[in-house]
Design a protein around this nucleic acid. Sequence first.
DNA 1: AATGAATGAGTATTCATTCAT
DNA 2: AATGAATGAATACTCATTCAT
Lengths: 217, 217, 217, 217
Amino acid sequence: MGRSSERSVEILGAARALFAENGFEGTSISDIAGAVGVADGAIYKHFPSKRAVLYEVIREFYEPVIDNASANVLGISGTRERLRYLIWLQLRAFTEQPELCRLIIAEARPMEDYYESKIADLNRRYTSLLVDVVRTGQVEGVFRGDIAPTMIRDLVYGGIEHIAWGAATGRSTIDVDEVADDLTRLVCQGLEPRPATADQLGVRVTRLENLIERDQG
Amino acid sequence: MGRSSERSVEILGAARALFAENGFEGTSISDIAGAVGVADGAIYKHFPSKRAVLYEVIREFYEPVIDNASANVLGISGTRERLRYLIWLQLRAFTEQPELCRLIIAEARPMEDYYESKIADLNRRYTSLLVDVVRTGQVEGVFRGDIAPTMIRDLVYGGIEHIAWGAATGRSTIDVDEVADDLTRLVCQGLEPRPATADQLGVRVTRLENLIERDQG
Amino acid sequence: MGRSSERSVEILGAARALFAENGFEGTSISDIAGAVGVADGAIYKHFPSKRAVLYEVIREFYEPVIDNASANVLGISGTRERLRYLIWLQLRAFTEQPELCRLIIAEARPMEDYYESKIADLNRRYTSLLVDVVRTGQVEGVFRGDIAPTMIRDLVYGGIEHIAWGAATGRSTIDVDEVADDLTRLVCQGLEPRPATADQLGVRVTRLENLIERDQG
Amino acid sequence: MGRSSERSVEILGAARALFAENGFEGTSISDIAGAVGVADGAIYKHFPSKRAVLYEVIREFYEPVIDNASANVLGISGTRERLRYLIWLQLRAFTEQPELCRLIIAEARPMEDYYESKIADLNRRYTSLLVDVVRTGQVEGVFRGDIAPTMIRDLVYGGIEHIAWGAATGRSTIDVDEVADDLTRLVCQGLEPRPATADQLGVRVTRLENLIERDQG
DNA sequence: AATGAATGAGTATTCATTCAT
DNA sequence: AATGAATGAATACTCATTCAT
């Protein structure tokens, strides 16, 4: 495999730095070759296309994160703790490597062949960890069963993306642990199975009263 | 303003259709000029750049939605109902105009000057409606006060984006009303201020018992 | 039509000279643009592709020849004279413009879309003149009717191509009038309808005797 | 000679198949090396260049055909039969191996060094068989002596090329024996030495009568 | 307001050939 | 005989933007 040669490593290193700094479209094969100190054509001895370089850069960064997450999540007991771990992990990844995360979200994901790529596979493997945690929570009765676990997955990862994006672009700052706590508490409480409380019923009664008054007004 | 001339309207109409179909990068000034039936150069009598055309197309679509939302949200009583309305509105926008939403998310947002653009301003105005609702909820005591309203904003809009994206790209289907109900319930319940219930404590006690037993086993 | 602009004329002139000298593959768009004194991209305001330039160069040369041939051949009476005229015309074209003929034969014809191109249409129109002449000769009884006119067309034009090619590449020299006479005489005599002669029968009898002797040997 | 090593044979076999399928330009050294299962550079231990591989592929195919033709033509008695044999042989070659013939005609022949190559030599040796047959016919009085044998060679091989080309590209179909008969008869009759016949004179007299009447009308 | 020709920089990819090992 | 990484030149085509008319 070309993947293991020293030159491939050099190319990926240079590409990673350039992609992070200038984006995928903003980086040419010539830029990468120049940074490595080889001719343009040499890149194609190691990778079949520019996009393959991008995908490999992402994979190299993504895979260990996923392997690590897969291994650790099983060692954590308790649905809530597992959820918090996955939320915290993603927040930390975004906070520590905002450029690579931007690359994945803003450049790789909109590509038309993305959903057939290895990267999308990795992403599915990764996010399915959270789906499994939620599903287990539902089975054990810790979570309500009337909500799709995939919706929770989208809510959590979409939410984290937006929260972290603001921090990554310098428009806000976040404390990873604190945000992880807040999100976990929100989601767990939101998913908590419980009988209707007087409070909750009160809200619904108010709404009905309003509607009725409007009709009569 | 040249923006309101008949020709400008024609240009924006053609651009909107082409951008929606082929994306921003996939549409050339020549394509737009050709669709309108004018020479390439004519576009520049009405808009300073291709990107300005994009931003104007988005603004034209976005602004009425925001004005409508701003007006309506005030006519709705109850924090929960207001929240549900904003969630439902965003889900419907995504479901009915997936191409334009894709344009905003995947093409406009990654642009480097996006956050200084009018579109970002519009977006801020729009999403601040939700921030205000949450803040009001906190003031009124309906919501916990220990969580940043902006975080809720990011969570809700980021979550909706992911949920709707899957539907827009055909990988899943959603029922707008149902999802709006689910999300509203989840967030409201998650934000509900309340002392620990026996139920909730029970769960945590059980967990501790489990951990202790494991240590002793 | 861009075809009529002065710049188009300049481009075609430069392309014609360069194609004739260096061939199609041996000429780049940059070469043509450079010869005209414009930027590379300017070529594409007048022609959609490099191949379109080639086809237009050929058409410009070919069309008048064909129009002229179509008009004149009708003014000539007698099948033999018409045939000789077409043969002579083709020989002269090859002798006077060997490079352009080479371009058509060696570069345009092997192209995969050639048979769907305008050039192939022109060629068909041109060579069908000879088919019509032969067919008329057959109808009038001047030529035998037991041979396909299209085969004669292929024989004559294929033959001329080879004959003239040797001259064009400097490997031989030809006298156009003389060769035209020879070819015309050969083809007309070869197509002459006549009863079997003793000579001819003798040849065939000899062949049969040989075959029989071989079998008995 | 390295040419005869086992590896060389493998290379030529792979190259032949690939050239026939994808053409010379459409086949890369890498393709050939890959098909053989060796590294790219290995090809250059056996052949000095890609073009040399092409020429060798053609030679390997061509030489036996020529040796066979040379041997057989001497075993055939009668100028007409010899001529027919050569015509038939060439038609059959085209019909059975259209791809290799296409390779020679459309790819090898247009190459600039073709006429100095071994292939051109082979071709000359091959086509000179027909020149010799015609010349012998002239010496024996079977053919007119007032026509250059090389012209007959060009006419016959050029004609066959065009006739067979249409069939090879699927635009027509041919029956090899029938076409061989037609061509042989046409050429032999066309070359037949004979005084003007009454028939022939009759045609010419008629034409003159027509011309005179037209002038008087 | 409109034209439309011109710009000119920009770029991924291919491939025959070489050469140190 | 073989490797296979490296070369480096080569190239058609695109397109936002300008500007003389």
